[in-house]
Structure formats: structure tokens, C-alpha cells
Write a protein that binds this DNA or RNA. Structure first.
Length: 643
RNA sequence: GCUGUCAUAGCUCAGGGGUAGAGCACCUCAUUGGUAAUGAGGAGGUCGAGGGUUCAAUUCCCUCUGACAGCACCA
């Protein structure tokens, strides 16, 4: 009869099979009250499930992170019941727990609107207050299909039909209402609590397939208690304040307008930021052994046909023609075919490999309108692109070298945390299995050498080779995929790139496609959001403002500004007839990192009062001393910082 | 691209079948002040574009364009 091992190692013997509830009660009334579900040998289960064999048990209480998923999943069921109660004829489909909450997809002729939310939420609270017990039932497959068909729940019936034959069909009841569900659930609807909120409605394709019907999805957030819910809502509000589109306007960095959808108008300050990043990258690439090139924007169709883009990528390409010439050209969506053209000029020797060819390549891609997002997802962008032409043996050392370069760059931009995804061979691919074996093995061993831990992303590689994707985490915990390293055996073949081997033979180089920032537009958007516009000094488009207290200090302020400017700092003066309070407030709101205040006293003593953004105090320094300090502080992180 | 929502002054937003309003920003004048808003005055809008209904449309209807959210896409 079951011997049940608790997390502390102690064992309880029971004379006959028992439910989780019984076990909890046997341990103590406190636990019996707190337990929401159990983990039996690691598998989450309802407390009502009978345990008839020896097992390790762990009870899930509200304190466990696992409780969040239970709360959210149960709340999804309650949402579905509420909706079917209020809107008869609505079909239920699926409703999983997701990060921060849950959603439920409904099939209904008229989609839901946020105006429906108050009624639905009220109904949900009603159902929760009833404390309806969750009851698990195992049904016969055919009976279940017939049942849901008879109710007009065609989507549910389809789900059951598609479940693998080995799967037990389970249904959960809560009061009068029931739903097909794998479970597990908590004891009753009351366990959900009140800390949830319906957030938004959205269309979503049935089973994520754009050829199938669009359903009406309701998103909600749910937490253990009101405090957690409030914290989450606050975080959403904070994230909105960081929105690069808002900051871009407020800081006068860029704009986008109707006549050039998906392209950025960089304003002076935004372009200064862009150039700072570009200059930094140029230095890093130079130091990293890359040579920079620049290739054409408009390239004849024939090259795209040869590269395979015309066949595989045409719908994403901008095509251009001219009246007087019978030619079709395309704006390049990628730089690789052009780089191969440079490689192909003249005979290449194995001695030149690895050959690292970098370009700040301006590309155009016709992205679907719904994909566009500020400067993060655009149709005209510049990649920090490079292709490394090398031998197969050089893949591993080049990968190590690349990861080293990339991690240093991310660190300099303030991202200490990044993750790596390893995407291996997809179902449809070019190249033999042996080549794939070699390419994947080379990448893996390179990761090991470089000390890179990766998560496997099975089957997600490019058709021509495996790839690494570098995902960085920003200041508020969001993930952004920026860097990539792709191994390519196909393009050198298609575009006939070759080099002379040590034995005077000819061989195909391997191409490594790689980017660190991804696109400048997107990366700058990430930087803006990561820093919420409060850039470190070396990146700030305007680094310093010299603000006067009285007009008697104007002349001195201009002298200060001019000396700072000569030292290479981005400085402006504020000599307006405004009170110093107003000036400080305005420049603080504009996120200028440093305000140098000068009044009569400073002008007489040749000092400046330095106030840092976010700081409440200021300190007074001699002008020469301040100048030296600021120049040092504004030095980009890759340059010498000698005092 | 799909579904939904939205589009009024530079920005944030109110309004509503009888040709529009606030706050901030902007301009002018007064004020020369010591670390997050000095005061007073002024100017500023084909109400996204096109069509329809109506005596009359910024308001109602249709189409288009764009934005936003999600889905699909991100080769």
C-alpha cells in the first residue's frame, strides 16, 4: 500500500489508496487548508487524484510559483464559463496560461470589445464567489466528440479528434459548466482569488494558422494577490513610458511619417546617437580584424536569381525599373550576394582566409504592414553585417572570436546578460547530412570553447546551415534577439565563390553570416528603451547644457561651452531669461545627463556647479578640473581612458 | 496581410448634425532670479484623405491612407 515520501525525506505509509487531500490532512490542518494541488513524482495533479502506489509528493500552495499557473489556468476556465453564460452561442476553443496571465480564444460572429469587459469580469467574480468544485472526469473519446458536436462546439470536437490515441480524454466540471481539459486544476473556483483583470481583445487564427478562421481572443492578467497585480500593472505603465516611439518624439530623435512608411527620418539628435554607435562599431570591427566595404543598393535581377533570393524572397523585395532601360533591379534585402561579388574579384588564396568583410549595409525589405513597429521593425534599415569567408576548420575558432567580440560589445552598451539559442537542421534544407553533422559539430564545439551555454532550438536553423542567435535582456527584463551567426555552405556554391588551396587546387569557402546589433534602427530602439532615454554620457546626443542664473554670466557660460565643445563634447547653452528652476526642470525632463550652472559667483571664481541627471545635489569645481573630468567620463568604453 | 480599435492645435486630450475647446509647448512684454514650472498677454486647427446622406457634416454612412494592440510573418 502506498508509501508516500515528503520533500523532507520522511515517509508516510497508508493502509489503502488515498487522495492527495487525505495525505495533506494527515500531515496537518494548515497544509490541508493551503494545498491547491500536488506534484506526484514531479507531475502536477489535482488533490482529488487517488494515489495507489509509492510516490514522492510535494504540495503546491499559494506561495509556490507553480500556483500562478494554476490560478491562471483556472481563471481561463472561469472566463470561458462567464462568456458562454453572457453570450450564448459563443464557442470555446483553447485558453492557456501564459506569461503574466492567460487568454481564451472564442469563436463568435461579433468579436468582443473592451466594453464587454466589466460585465464579463463581474460574472467571473460571481463564479469565483460560488467556490464551484473542479471535478475531473474521464470520458470515452467518441462520447466526448459526440457531446461537443451536439453542443455546436465544433472546435472542441476537432481538438479531441486530433489528440493522440494514447491520451485519456478528460473533462473538468465547475458547477454546471464543463470543458475539455488536461488539467490539473485547484480545488474550486474560489482558489483563483480576485487579483485578475481583463486586458485586451485581439484576433487570433485558429491553431495559429492564417488560412483558418480568426477567433476572438480575450487577454487577461492574473496574480496571487492584489499587490502582485498592482505591481504588474505598474510595470506595464513603466514600460509604456520607455516606449522608444514616445521618447524618440520627446527627445527629438526621429520621426516616421505616412509618405515613407517603415523608414526613419533621423533628426539631428537621433542621428548623433546613431553616429556615436556607428563610430564605436567601426572601431570594434577594425580592431576585430574586419575590413569594411560598401556595396550597391540597386542590383540587377540576375544576381538575385543566381543567389536564390528572386525565387525565395521576392515578395519581400522592392523592385525598381527605369523607363529608358529594359532592366529590372531590386533594392538589396541582404548584403551577402554583394559581398560574394567582392570576394570573387581576382583569385583568392587560402592564405587570405578567414576573410572578414564588414558593411554597414543599407537594406530594404517589404515587411507586412502589421509587422511594422516604430524603428524596431522597419522596411529600410542598416545592418552591422559581415561575412566571414573561411574553411570548415576555421568555423570553430571564428565562432569563439565572434562571441568574444559580441559579448564585449553588449557589455559596453550596458547589457551584461545575454542568452544563446542554437538552431539546428530544419526539415527542408540544402546540403548533405554529413555537411550538417560537421557544421553543427563545429558550432557546438565552438560554443564549448567559448564557454557559451545555449538552449537548443530544434529545427529552426536556416535552410543553408545551423545558426546561433544571441538574445539580450534589457533593464526591465525583456528579451531582444539581436546577434546572429549562421553557417552557410550554399551561397558560395550558388554564386561560385572559390579560393586556391595550399595544393594549388580550388575549393569553396564557407560563409559565416554574422551580425551583432542586428539593425541599427532596432538596436537604437532597444537602447532608448533600455535606458528610458537617460543615456550614459558617451551615448547621450546632448551631453551637457551650460545654464546661466543671471545674464551677467552669459559671457562666461559661452566660454565654458566653447571649451567643452573644443574638447569634443556635445554641449548647448541656455542663456534664456528664465529662472534657474525652470531651466533645470526642462533639461532634466529632456534627459540631458549634466547641467553646468553658472552665476555671478562661478563667473568670478572660474568654476562650474555640476548637477547630474537624477541627482538632487550639485558640486562646484574649477573649470579646468571639470573639463578634464568630463572628457574622461564621456570617452567611449573602447577607447583609452587616461586621465 | 488578418481581426479589432483609433485619427480634433507641435504634444496630451475634451467636445459634438448649425464651420471647435483645455493644459503644456510656441511668440510678445515685464521680471535678473542660486538648483525640477515667474507673471501677464498673444498667435495657432480644411477636425487624416476622398465620396455619400442632409438645408447644413469635423460629428452619421462608405472607401482609402496611416497609427496602435494581438495574430500571422521576421527567409
Amino acid at each position: 500500500m502506498p508509501a508516500i515520501t515528503l520533500p523532507d525525506g520522511s515517509v508516510r505509509d497508508f493502509a489503502e489508496p488515498v487522495t492527495g487531500t487525505t495525505v495533506a490532512e494527515a500531515i496537518g490542518p494548515g497544509l490541508a487548508k493551503a494545498a491547491l494541488a500536488m506534484q506526484l513524482d514531479g507531475a502536477m495533479m489535482d488533490l482529488s487524484r487517488v494515489i495507489d502506489r509509492d510516490a514522492h509528493i510535494r504540495f503546491i500552495t499559494r506561495k509556490d510559483d507553480a500556483a500562478l499557473e494554476l490560478i491562471r489556468h483556472d481563471a481561463a476556465h472561469v472566463l470561458a464559463e462567464a462568456v458562454q453564460d453572457l453570450f450564448p452561442g459563443t464557442q470555446v476553443t483553447i485558453g492557456p496560461a501564459i506569461e503574466n496571465g492567460f487568454y481564451y480564444d472564442f469563436a463568435r460572429n461579433a468579436p468582443f470589445t473592451p466594453e464587454d469587459f466589466p460585465a464579463i469580469e463581474a460574472k467571473m467574480r460571481e463564479i469565483i464567489a460560488k467556490r464551484a468544485k473542479f471535478v475531473r472526469e474521464e470520458w470515452d473519446r467518441q462520447d466526448a466528440i459526440a457531446f461537443f458536436e451536439a453542443r455546436g462546439e465544433g472546435f472542441k470536437a476537432e481538438l479531441i479528434r486530433d489528440l493522440p490515441p494514447s491520451e485519456t480524454i478528460t473533462v473538468y466540471r465547475q458547477g454546471e459548466w464543463l470543458d475539455l481539459c488536461r488539467g490539473p486544476h485547484m480545488r474550486d473556483t474560489g482558489d483563483i482569488g480576485q487579483a485578475f483583470k481583463l486586458m485586451k481583445v485581439a484576433g487570433a487564427y485558429w491553431r495559429g494558422d492564417h488560412t483558418r478562421p480568426m477567433l476572438s481572443r480575450i487577454y487577461a492578467t492574473a496574480w496571487r494577490d492584489q499587490k502582485e497585480l498592482d505591481a504588474h500593472l505598474l510595470q506595464l505603465a513603466e514600460a509604456e513610458k520607455r516606449d522608444h516611439r514616445r521618447i524618440g518624439r520627446e527627445m527629438d530623435l526621429f520621426h516616421i511619417q505616412e509618405e515613407a512608411v517603415g523608414s526613419v527620418f533621423w533628426h539631428e539628435k537621433g542621428w548623433r546617437l546613431y553616429r556615436t554607435v556607428e563610430a564605436y562599431m567601426r572601431r570594434k570591427l577594425e580592431a576585430g580584424g574586419y575590413g569594411e566595404v560598401k556595396t550597391p543598393q540597386l542590383v540587377d535581377r540576375s544576381l538575385w536569381e543566381a543567389s536564390g533570393h528572386w525565387e525565395k524572397f521576392r515578395e519581400h523585395m522592392f523592385i525598381a525599373t527605369v523607363e529608358d532601360e529594359d532592366k529590372t533591379l531590386a533594392l538589396k534585402p541582404m548584403n551577402c550576394p554583394c559581398h560574394v561579388q567582392i570576394f570573387r574579384q581576382g583569385l583568392r588564396s587560402y592564405r587570405e582566409l578567414p576573410l572578414r568583410m564588414a558593411e554597414f549595409g543599407s537594406c530594404h525589405r517589404y515587411e507586412p504592414s502589421g509587422a511594422l513597429h516604430g524603428i524596431m521593425r522597419v522596411r529600410a534599415f542598416t545592418q552591422d553585417d559581415a561575412h566571414i569567408f573561411c574553411t570548415e576548420e576555421q568555423i570553430a575558432p571564428e565562432t569563439v572570436r565572434f562571441v568574444d567580440l559580441l559579448s564585449g560589445i553588449y557589455r559596453d552598451f550596458g547589457f551584461s546578460d545575454f542568452a544563446v539559442k542554437f538552431s539546428d537542421r530544419p526539415a527542408t534544407r540544402a546540403g548533405s547530412d554529413q555537411v550538417w553533422d560537421r557544421a553543427e559539430a563545429a558550432l557546438k564545439s565552438a560554443c564549448a570553447t567559448a564557454g557559451v551555454d545555449y538552449v537548443l532550438n530544434p529545427g529552426e536553423g536556416a535552410f543553408y546551415g545551423p545558426k546561433l542567435e544571441f538574445v539580450l535582456r534589457d533593464a526591465i527584463g525583456r528579451d531582444w534577439q539581436c546577434g546572429t551567426l549562421q553557417v552557410d555552405f550554399v551561397l558560395p556554391e550558388r554564386l561560385d565563390a572559390e579560393y586556391v588551396t595550399a595544393e594549388s587546387g580550388r575549393a569553396r569557402p564557407v560563409m559565416l553570416h554574422r551580425a551583432i546589433l542586428g539593425s541599427f534602427e532596432r538596436f537604437l530602439g532597444i537602447l532608448i528603451e533600455n535606458y528610458a532615454g537617460r543615456f550614459p554620457l558617451w551615448l547621450a546626443p546632448t551631453q551637457i547644457v551650460v545654464a546661466t542664473i543671471v545674464s551677467d554670466a552669459d559671457e562666461y557660460a559661452q566660454e565654458v561651452a566653447s571649451r567643452l565643445k573644443k574638447a569634443g563634447l556635445a554641449v548647448i547653452t541656455d542663456l534664456r531669461n528664465e529662472k534657474i528652476n525652470a531651466k533645470i526642470r526642462e533639461h532634466s525632463l529632456a534627459h540631458i545627463p549634466l547641467i553646468l550652472v553658472v552665476g555671478r559667483k562661478e563667473a568670478e571664481e572660474r568654476t562650474v556647479a555640476i548637477r547630474r541627471l537624477g541627482g538632487a545635489s550639485q558640486h562646484v569645481m574649477g573649470l579646468d578640473e571639470a573639463l578634464a573630468m568630463l572628457v574622461l567620463e564621456a570617452t567611449p568604453p573602447d577607447l583609452e581612458r587616461d586621465a
